[in-house]
Amino acid sequence: MEFYGTEITSRLLLGTAQYPSPAVLAEAAKSSGTEIITVSLRRETADGSGTAFWQELQKTGCRILPNTAGCHSVQEAVTTARMARELFDTPWIKLEVIGHSDTLQPDVFGLVEAARILSSEGFQVFPYTTDDLVVGEKLLEAGCEVLMPWGAPIGSGQGLRNPDALRAMRGHFPGVPLIVDAGIGRPSDAAQAMELGMDAVLLNTAVAKAGDPAGMARAMALAVEAGRAGFAADPMERRDMAVPSTPVLGMAEFA
């Protein structure tokens, strides 16, 4: 699997927020087998806590996918992306333009506009979007080569609210890497996303807020792998009625 020409093996991307400690984060990242971790930018404090965190992150050896989390306008998101590119020395940006503070739903109009600006400046944009097909098309036109539809609202852990829409996305964008970003709560949610043909899953809270983050990170990795293998193996069609799996022919008569 490739994101913007970069070969990636692990189909699980992991967020770095809300862990009980940096050590737990490092352990979770390791047991997840992830190659890509997401980070943000926030105001630096006088004690240089951001700098210390950055040194910890570099030890993981993972690729960094900086985000524009919390940005509500195109201008905020674009400026944050430019700052992230310098700070993390990467053209990758997880582009979030948030429309509502309560639902954290993407503002897809601002998203497309920001994606166009950033793509023209050489950024490789990973847009956090809805499962809307037309928005997906507009993002591709804007220069995106990856789409990241939500499964459910950020941090909700509800799983996939609309699996049919994700299936439609898979059918509509056959060659585009699709990453389900947000809403995954349990390993079965991650497996379901992968069974639908998603290329990868990005999650954070489900691991960070689990009782045993490293254990959940491993469970998620296994689920992603199982779901992907299931998709590749072409699952059977569902049937409305029972169909005996044991042959009926040759049954003894006892009456």
């Binding site: 809300q18 997401t38 980070v39 943000s40 930018l41 951001g50 965190f53 700052m83």
Partner: peptide
């Protein structure tokens, strides 16, 4: 002036 640094993020 905004001075930003790496921070935990999802």
């Amino acid at each position: 002036l905004e001075v930003l640094a790496p921070m935990q993020g999802g």
